[in-house]
């Protein structure tokens, strides 16, 4: 299948999935207990007139389907509605906060890829005590959820040693990077362990294959055999894991941003959920779904480059 046809088909599938997801998200919000009106009034008893005014402003009395259609219609015009808590456009909120989240996820991803691949590579190639040390370290990393890592790192490097700020996003880009360092490490730790394990296992599997011995028998130097044959062949597995890693980063960023008070969409999701800020929660959920699908699409499009035996859009052969 040609690249363009494949991409077109996948984009159509993505649109359909997004549509389905939007229905589920909106429905879940509709069914969830508590109403925006009661939050806005924050427990005060309101006159029936005031309640009516609020319901009218947010169209809360309309039938479900009408509310849903109004919402999706607005989204198609790029309008995610107005935040109840912040009393500003949701799209504005997102535009302000998305960069910090994307930067945080990118920093964590760089850490995960660099350290995960390096540790996995060294473990597989060196073996012995080095490998055992890496196995123990990665087991530790794998046993540490990102919110625990966040608290530990904050306590040690921000509070005790004072090397990094305890939270916030700072002023300017350099300051932002500095503020995001600890959150990125907290976010990356678990996934570094995971990628190291996956890389190590994939490389060990290739190392046992005949073509690696055959390459050595042709006089190819050991480091070239590792790079050109072992690591190269392990890349397919690494790429597949990469999709999972980015998705996990997007999920865990909610916890880590909250822990470090990073003003990204993760923290916004947490805040808006607790305040029943329906329009914001719906918008962020939908964006998350879109990001997941984009990540998967990119992984699928890259796969044939990494493994020429894979063809775009083909079902895996049973063999």
């Amino acid at each position: 299948m040609s690249f363009l046809r494949f991409a077109a088909r996948r984009l159509a599938e993505m649109a359909a999935t997004l549509f389905g997801a939007s229905f589920v998200i909106f429905g879940a919000m509709y069914l969830a207990p508590g109403s925006p009106a009661s939050f806005l009034l924050s427990g005060r008893s309101a006159s029936p007139e005031a309640l009516k005014a609020i319901n009218a402003q947010y169209h809360l009395d309309d039938p479900f389907l009408l509310q849903y259609l109004r919402w999706t219609g607005q989204i198609l015009h790029g309008d995610f509605g107005r935040s109840i808590t912040y009393r500003t456009d949701v799209s504005r909120l997102l535009a302000d906060r998305l960069p910090a989240t994307l930067l945080l996820v990118a920093m964590a991803l760089v850490l995960v890829v660099a350290l995960g691949l390096l540790l996995g590579w060294i473990g597989a190639v060196r073996g012995g005590a080095t490998d055992s040390t890496i196995l123990v370290t990665t087991t530790f990393a794998l046993g540490t959820p990102s919110f625990v890592a966040a608290v530990l790192l904050q306590g040690l490097f921000a509070v005790e040693l004072g090397w990094f700020p305890t939270g916030g996003t700072g002023e300017g880009f350099g300051d932002l990077l500095w503020h995001l360092t600890l959150p990125a490490v907290a976010l990356a730790l678990y996934l570094i362990g995971m990628l190291a394990r996956v890389t190590r296992a994939a490389m060990l599997e290739v190392l046992g294959q005949e073509h690696v011995t055959a390459a050595r028998s042709r006089g190819v130097a050991p480091h070239q055999v590792i790079r050109r044959h072992v690591f190269r062949n392990a890349l397919g597995t690494v790429l597949t894991t990469g999709g999972l890693i980015v998705s996990t980063l997007l999920v865990c960023t909610v916890l880590v941003e909250s822990a470090f008070s990073v003003g990204g969409i993760g923290q916004l999701l947490e805040l808006s959920t607790t305040t029943k800020d329906f329009p914001t929660v719906q918008a962020i959920s939908l964006i998350m779904v879109g990001l997941f699908m984009t990540v998967n699409l990119v992984v699928d499009l890259l796969h044939p480059l990494v493994d020429p035996t894979v063809t775009l859009g083909a079902r895996r052969s049973p063999a």
């Binding site: 294959q209 005949e210 073509h211 055959a214 493994d307 035996t309």
Partner: peptide
């Protein structure tokens, strides 16, 4: 291994890197 002696393996499908 480069210039003096060379080996032909039993199963070429296993002995040649498929990628």
């Amino acid at each position: 291994r480069t210039n003096t002696a060379a080996m032909i393996f039993q199963d070429p499908r296993a002995a040649i890197n498929p990628l």
